[in-house]
């Protein structure tokens, strides 16, 4: 019995050591909406991400209510009218780095990462592919990406009254510094 428990524990440790998992809990994601009428940006600095360097699995989770706007009313509208954050508190991305062989997590440098996976916003899931970068400085890994999100694709209705003030495409920037786990 005891040896079994030990074996399981040993295997768990070996797996963990092999997994090369990196975790971030205070990652930064922000979006930017530009129209001639209005500039809107909102920052979320509490993004959780897990990167598995051995498999290329990469996950981002964030709470919509953690986005901070400069103007209080914009934040209320974002959560109540557009994102319905009480009903859909989280936005997630679950995907894979598909060119893992081109990235050496043990060596400092800037690598291009091709990422593909499922993005879920406002309860709607879409498959997306984008190009990001993996920066490694003194062994510290930072994942960066910039891509467009179209609110309409995720069933987010923008009322006609404010149509001119909110961009059709949001520019989303991801900046996640990981710590080894």
């Amino acid at each position: 019995m005891k040896s079994k428990v030990l074996l399981v524990a040993f295997l768990a440790v070996v797996q963990l050591a092999n997994a090369q998992k990196y975790i971030a809990k205070t990652g930064h994601v922000w979006f930017y909406s530009h129209t001639p009428m209005e500039e809107i940006e909102a920052h979320n600095r509490q993004v959780v991400s897990i990167l598995d360097a051995s498999t290329g699995d990469i996950v981002f989770n964030l709470l919509n209510k953690s986005f901070e706007f400069k103007v209080a009313l914009m934040q209320e509208h974002f959560n109540e009218n557009y994102m319905q954050s009480t009903k859909f508190p989280k936005s997630t991305f679950k995907g894979k780095i598909t060119n893992l062989d081109k990235i050496d997590f043990k060596k400092d440098g800037t690598y291009t990462a091709e990422v593909t996976g499922d993005m879920t916003i406002h309860g709607v899931t879409k498959n997306i592919t984008t190009i990001g970068t993996i920066e490694i400085v003194n062994g510290v890994i930072t994942a960066k990406a910039k891509f467009k999100v179209i609110p309409k694709d995720y069933g987010i209705q923008i009322p006609q009254l404010v149509e001119n003030k909110i961009a059709k495409e949001m520019e989303v920037t991801v900046d996640i510094p990981y710590s080894a786990n």
Partner: peptide, 11 residues
């Protein structure tokens, strides 16, 4: 603001 791996508070 909710729960991910931990409970999250902001501001």
């Amino acid at each position: 603001t909710g729960y991910l791996m931990d409970v999250v508070l902001n501001k």
